[in-house]
Design a protein around this nucleic acid. Structure first.
Lengths: 241, 241
DNA sequence: CTGCTTATTTACTCGTGGGTAGGAATGCTA
DNA sequence: TAGCATTCCTACCCACGAGTAAATAAGCAG
C-alpha cells in the first residue's frame, strides 16, 4: 500500500507511464470507499440488531465505527437508506438459496427443505434482524413498496415449491398459502430470539425446524417397534385415567 | 342510565336514604374511570398495531379518543406503561388457554393443538401486535424482565405439553425446545401480516397451521389409494426427467 | 352559596436525534 | 508550488414528541 508511491516515480522515469496508470490510485480509492460504505452498513446492522431501529441513533452507529455522524452521512444519505441496505443484504441471501435450489435434482419437498435451511441461516445471520423486522411503518411509502415486493417474491417462491410438491406427490395435501406463512413465520421468528441463545448455529436451528415441518407432530405408524407399542399403551392408560 | 338520577330524589323523599347510598355515585364514577382507562388502552393497542410503537405519539392516541394528551396521562403514567398493559392483555388470553386445556381429557398432542389454536387467535386479536412485538429494547429493564418472564412461562408451557406428548406417545420424537420455538414462531408471526389480509379469521388461520404442524409436509403412507399411487409415479417421472 | 374533588384543557419545557453548513486535513495532479 | 478532490470534523439547526404546570369546567357535599 504505502510503497506504491515510492516506486511510482522510478517506473515513470523509465518512460513506461502506462504500466502504472495514473488512474490506479483513484480506482483504489473508489474501492476503499466501497469497503468503508459496506462497513457502515454492517455496523448499522449490528446496532439495529442489538437495540432496534428506533433506539439506535446515527451517533451510535458512528461511535461503533469510531467516527462522527457526518462521516456516516458521507457514505449514506439517510437512516432509512441504511435500514433498506441491510434489508436487501439479507434478502439477497435468500434469493440465492432459491436460485441454488432450482438446480437440485430432488423432489420439490427436498428442494423446499434446502431453501428453508438457507432461509433460516440468513435469518440468524448478521442482517437477519433487519430483513425480518424492517417495518413498512418505519419507511417511506416508496421504500415500503419496494420491500413489500421483495418479501412477496420470497413468499411466492415458497408457495410455488409447495405447489410443485403437491404435484409430484412429495408434499401432503395442504393449503399452499397458509403452509407458506407457517413455515416462513417459524423461521422469521428466529430473528427475535437468536441473539439471546447462541448455543446452536443458524444452520442447526434451521435443520431442526425442517425436521419438525417434514415429519409433523403426529407419530407415523410404521411397522410398530417395541417402543412404539409401549407408547401407545401408555397413551391409552393416560386417557383412561 | 339517565333515568336513575331522576328517580333517586323520589326514593330519598320516602325516607330510605340507605337504599340509595350517597356512595353510589362515587362508586359509579370509579367504574366509569375504569372503563375510560380500558378505552385508552384499547385505543393505544389499535394505534400501535397500525403504526408501530415508536411511530405512534401520545397525541395520536389522544386524537383517536378525541381528547388531548394530558387526558391520556390522567389515566396512565407513561407510554411505556401503555405498551405494557396491552402486552399483558394479550398474554392473559394465552394463559387462559393453558388453564382451559389442562382440563381436557385428551392426549397431550390434542391439548397442545387446542392451546395453539387459542394462541393463534390471541395473536390475531387486537392486542396481538403488542404482545408479540413488544420489544425488550423499547422498555425499561424492570418491565423488560417482567415481560420476559411472562413470555418464558408460555414457552415453558408449550415445551411441557410437548414432553407430555412424547411420554404418552401422541407426539413423535422431537426436540421439545426447538419444536416449541418453531410452533410459537409460526403463530407469533401472524401478527406481522394479519393486518393486511383479513380474509380469514384468527381461528381459521390457527386451525390451518395446527393441521400443518400435526401432519407434517411429508405425505403419510396409508393404504395406497389410486391418487397416492399416481402421485408417486409422477414424482418418479419428475425425478427421472 | 362555598368549598372540595374529578376531569379535561391550554400552553408550555426540554431532551433527543435526524440532518446540514462550512471548514480543516490529506493527498493527488500539473 | 498552486490547485483540486476526497474525506472527515466541529458546531450547529430544528422538528418532534414525552411529559408537566397550571388554569378551567363540572359536578357533589355541607
Amino acid at each position: 500500500m504505502s510503497n506504491r508511491r515510492s516506486s511510482s516515480p522510478v517506473n515513470g522515469a523509465k518512460g513506461a507511464p502506462a504500466l502504472v496508470s495514473p488512474w490506479r490510485a483513484s480506482r483504489e480509492r473508489l474501492r476503499d470507499r466501497e469497503l468503508k460504505r459496506e462497513a457502515v452498513i454492517r455496523a448499522a446492522a449490528r446496532e439495529f440488531n442489538r437495540k432496534g431501529y428506533h433506539n439506535t441513533s446515527l451517533d451510535d452507529i458512528a461511535a461503533a465505527l469510531e467516527v462522527t455522524k457526518p462521516t456516516v452521512y458521507y457514505y449514506v444519505t439517510s437512516k432509512e437508506q441504511l435500514l433498506f441496505e441491510c434489508f436487501v443484504a439479507g434478502v439477497e441471501q435468500i434469493r440465492a438459496a432459491f436460485r441454488e435450489a432450482r438446480q437440485l435434482p430432488l423432489s420439490a419437498r427436498e428442494r423446499l427443505s434446502a431453501v428453508l435451511r438457507h432461509y433460516g441461516e440468513a435469518v440468524a445471520s448478521e442482517f437477519g434482524w433487519c430483513m425480518v423486522r424492517a417495518e413498512d411503518q418505519d419507511l417511506s411509502p416508496a421504500m415500503s413498496r419496494h420491500i413489500k415486493s421483495l418479501k412477496s417474491e420470497i413468499d411466492q417462491g415458497i408457495r410455488r415449491l409447495i405447489r410443485e410438491g403437491l404435484q409430484d406427490g412429495s408434499i401432503a395435501e395442504c393449503d399452499p398459502k397458509m403452509t407458506a406463512f407457517a413455515l416462513a413465520g417459524a423461521l422469521n421468528w428466529i430473528a427475535h430470539w437468536y441473539r439471546e441463545d447462541q448455543s446452536l448455529t443458524g444452520a442447526q436451528i434451521a435443520s431442526a425446524f425442517v425436521t419438525v415441518f417434514e415429519g409433523g407432530l403426529r407419530p407415523r405408524r410404521g411397522p410398530l417397534g417395541i417402543e412404539s407399542r409401549t407408547r401407545r399403551r401408555r397413551m391409552r392408560d393416560a386417557l383412561a385415567r
